[in-house]
Design a protein around this nucleic acid. Structure first.
Lengths: 210, 210
DNA sequence: TGAAAAATACCGTGTTTACGGGATTTTATT
DNA sequence: AATAAAATCCCGTAAACACGGTATTTTTCA
């Protein structure tokens, strides 16, 4: 028989934690091995290294859940962390992803997804509940790819421009005169409909024009 | 009884399509309603508007799967598109997401995830198979969050700076003098270790400091 | 209440930008 | 061979930037 998936729960709201526990009980291949009410408690325990999944709240007394992620991963890099929070702000989601979370479920609809999330994460995947998935999608979708056509040289110039160096330095790097760079930049601005170096760099970054 | 999930498959490799079909047969709540070997065929059919899920290959004769996504969504915006491809390149994944795909499974391991993916996508979520999930994670993770602390005012200034407007305009917007903005900008540059407006904007964008 | 941090403001100088104009050479493209 | 597109270069000017310094007021917090 396969070993059961070992789950740790870090949640300070006891009634919600109980709901999660009963939800996990109904998943035959999983078992809740430990439960803590703060990151500190969990970090000081010795149960992390045996666990497969960590269900983590964000709003916690002491160390914030998001801040806790790197600390948990330091102790056990194999740990699959799934955030379960009431917070549905973009910044929380993206920070969680940056920190290395494998999933983000909202408390309001996590029971529908918990089983799926556990299975999927154990298979190496990642999972978001709908509202969070929409944010990820929006994040990637946000800029319709620009139809503007820059010439080869203009692309080279823009690529350097967006690193933040001066036109003089660009001229040196491309072994052309300052005047030439200036001309290219002028044309780039016209094509991108911008009026400053920062705006050009921004458009370049966001639209994947380069 | 609930209506079954209606699935359409667009795949030109017949033997692989057969495998997918038999996999779907084993999911009681789903049914494969149509199968096409190209985007054109599927687009010309009248089955799209009734479908819930479209399983879509990328390498197809004629219209490429990724190019097909917006066309499918134009006909039926509610369609949940899951890419099933052999291609595991970042660019394909991100383009798929930009186009509006709800999932990305690799052919090499899609059978393990297909059932989960269908369920999850129907719940409004999204799903990636492990290698793809890792890419998404890497994408978000690439910039270690800056530990730099900017003051409230500095953040406001930086937020405006990265829109590409001049310091003079920033002063007007914040109703402070140019000299004050200049001071803030100087301090921001020092804290971020940059030497130009473009670099500051870049750091601000990439590190999620704001 | 007292010290530290933050926000405010000004000056001066050399550098860089934005942008108008015009002009020549090189490189496709047909 | 002819035309268009791209790449090269220069001039001039007003505005904006980077950066050094100094200094006052306001806020915060121990």
């Amino acid at each position: 028989m396969e070993k059961k998936v070992q789950i740790i729960l870090v949640e300070d709201d006891m009634s919600f934690a109980d709901n999660v526990k009963s939800c996990i009980k109904e998943i035959p291949e999983s078992s809740l091995c430990q439960q803590y009410i703060s990151c500190e408690d969990a970090l000081n325990s010795n149960s992390l290294s045996d666990a497969d999944i960590l269900l983590l709240d964000i709003n916690l007394p002491g160390i914030d859940g998001l801040e806790g992620i790197p600390r948990f991963l330091q102790i056990n890099p194999e740990l699959n962390i799934i955030i379960i929070s009431i917070l549905n702000h973009d910044s929380k989601l993206f920070k969680a992803l940056q920190m290395g979370a494998k999933g983000y479920l909202l408390k309001t609809d996590c029971f529908m997804h918990l089983k799926t999330a556990i299975q999927e994460v154990m298979l190496g995947g990642m999972l978001f509940s709908p509202q969070m998935a929409a944010k990820v999608l929006k994040y990637f979708k946000r800029k319709p790819l620009l139809k503007v056509k820059l010439t080869k040289r203009e692309k080279e110039v823009l690529k350097l421009l967006k690193t933040g160096i001066s036109k003089k330095e660009i001229a040196t790097k491309l072994q052309i005169s300052y005047g030439t760079v200036d001309s290219h930049v002028k044309n780039i601005y016209k094509k991108l409909h911008v009026k400053s170096n920062v705006q050009a760099a921004k458009v370049a970054m966001e639209s994947g024009i380069i």
